[in-house]
Design a binder for these strands. Structure first.
Lengths: 342, 342
DNA sequence: CTGAAAGCGCTAACAT
DNA sequence: ATGTTAGCGCTTTCAG
């Protein structure tokens, strides 16, 4: 078993106070930049603190002050491009502001949501929470509201809390319209979860946009052209198999995320199908890897979503608090070589 | 400014004690599963705690017990496939064990290393630290040793602490040998950082393995065949440009990471070069997208590195502490279609 | 501008 | 098996 940190030779606020010949209260004030400390005193205290390499114990100050200077980022999965971008963006901003960033994976079922439903005292461990593409149950929302935890959402809107995201309806519309303009009429749609009763907002909105463009073009919607891709590469490949091996396959596919589009590309490759000759393909994200296969996609700046979310949160936590409701981030159709005329 | 959590209506250990008709000490014991509590008492306390939805304040128990039940994962960057895999693996294990996982980006220069050099009191915020591909300066190592922080490294070895990783020399050898076997003699090497004085161990070892295979095959090493790829897609593309546009370009390229290999593929695509007809390509990792472009690669199971690291750390923290020095994870050459005979 | 002192909520001896 | 009590190291009134 590991030896716990050697106690004793770490300096406390009392050591600093003693060495500087002042009281602990003054040390506390001085070090935190609070007013009512003589400049000379403050300077002396800083020097002493440096010499003793003193650092306030976070747990102690948390307990006394009621703030932890740390935030949590809750994501469905940590190991996908999209979520790591967001986390990276958020972490950078938080680190800059002196906040610790705790990551937490959350699932859809109750058991994996302890961070969200209050059963883990999250509100006493962190000052704020960033939700990435996770929708809260009403009870959870209510809980956080009552608990007073600062909260911002990226992706889905969370009523009563700030959120940042893109116009997902427009995403679906843009993608569909691009394909329609190229002459496609049988367009496959790879969406999110198979049967998730609690499917979140984003895929629904994208689908809505997709369908509105289709309808506007007078194209009939065909249920056989929808397949779940799980937002993963493998899922995208499975969906591609389902779509492409059907009796009347689509001539184009819109995958709601680049990762799923990569799965389509992989499957096409295995099957010997060419993109875009045999099937056009468009994704969403503009993943780093998109240019590698020339994927046409709807670009969004994911890392920025993370930084913005963190800034919104910090603003809420300690800013002058102009309460922001929704930040809409830009999107852009990037045409590469994975789409062509029918 | 955000309203801090409504104080008052959150229950403390005293509330529970009062409601259960016992002392706080008993409540503490009961709830933490310590011995010396009558079964009936324990049960009653649990019920009361549930009713009051009581949860011990982490800061308070941290302060009293000296343990934070949280660990930190330090990575050079959060937004790459490799690091997110490791973080995901570690987080899963830690969450399971009831530990919070703090992520921290660290750079190479002093300023971005405050987490590591003791200037941030990390040792008082977390019980342990997982280092992912970051080498510590001697002073930093010494500091953590003195401070007693539990530490495990993934990738590089850190003397005196457990680490998990692969045989990187063998990685380089395997890749080079595969290419040599296919008849290649001019083989480009895309390594890590441009001029990092403090380049870490891993790229060096891979290069070593690469060169030993080359020498064993009687192939002369050509400095013109080395290019830095920064371990990113863009870096890989730049390196590819440097290599492929040179007077005497290589017929094959070994990129030390799949992400860089993707960069090569992207550049080749832009230049109209075919893989493997014009240039063979091998990477390292077996990234999710490797199959998408049929990339030959040296597979490693990165997420498992993360789970293993976390387990080593927890074992150190609270296990029976069989002190493990180094865990060697398996690697495997996966031949796909990006390599062919010369 | 500075100090004294009362907690913050919990854990861990030490008693009983 | 349970209770008492002394802190853990800091912040924050409230006095001076």
């Amino acid at each position: 078993v590991h030896q716990p940190p050697t106690p004793g030779h770490r300096s406390t606020i009392e050591d600093v106070a003693a060495a500087a010949g002042v009281s602990v209260a003054t040390v506390s004030r001085a070090l935190r930049g609070l007013p009512n400390v003589a400049a000379s005193t403050r300077e002396r205290i800083h020097e002493v603190a440096t010499t003793l390499s003193y650092r306030a114990d976070p747990a102690a100050s948390r307990l006394a002050a009621g703030r932890s200077r740390s935030i949590a980022v809750a994501v469905p999965m940590l190991n996908t491009w999209y979520f790591s971008q967001v986390v990276a963006g958020a972490e950078a901003v938080c680190a800059e502001a002196g906040y610790d960033t705790i990551v937490a994976g959350v699932g859809h079922d109750r058991a994996e949501r302890s961070i969200l439903d209050g059963s883990s005292a999250l509100h006493r461990r962190v000052d704020g929470l960033i939700l990435v593409d996770v929708s809260l149950f009403d009870t959870e929302l209510e809980f956080h509201r009552s608990t007073g935890l600062a909260l911002v959402s990226v992706g889905a809107r969370q009523i009563g809390f700030p959120s940042i995201g893109i116009d997902d309806v427009e995403v679906g519309r843009l993608a569909a319209q691009h394909l329609i303009d190229l002459g496609h009429r049988r367009i496959g749609l790879i969406h999110g979860a198979t049967e998730d009763p609690f499917d979140f907002e984003v895929p629904l909105l994208r689908q809505q946009g997709f369908e509105s463009a289709m309808r506007a073009a007078g194209i009939e919607l065909d249920p056989a052209l929808y397949a779940p891709g799980d937002f993963t590469v493998d899922g995208g490949a499975r969906a591609a198999a389902q779509l492409l091996d059907s009796a009347d396959p689509p001539t184009a596919i819109f995958a709601m995320a680049d990762e799923m589009a990569f799965g389509v590309a992989r499957y096409a490759r295995e099957r010997g199908l060419r993109i875009p000759e045999d099937v056009s393909l468009v994704g969403v994200d503009d993943h780093d890897f998109a240019p590698v296969i020339g994927l046409t996609t709807i670009r969004q700046h994911v890392e920025e979503h993370g930084t913005t979310a963190a800034r919104l949160l910090l603003n809420d936590l300690e800013g002058d608090g102009a309460p922001i409701e929704r930040v809409n981030a830009p999107i852009e159709l990037i045409v590469r070589s994975s789409t062509s005329t029918r």
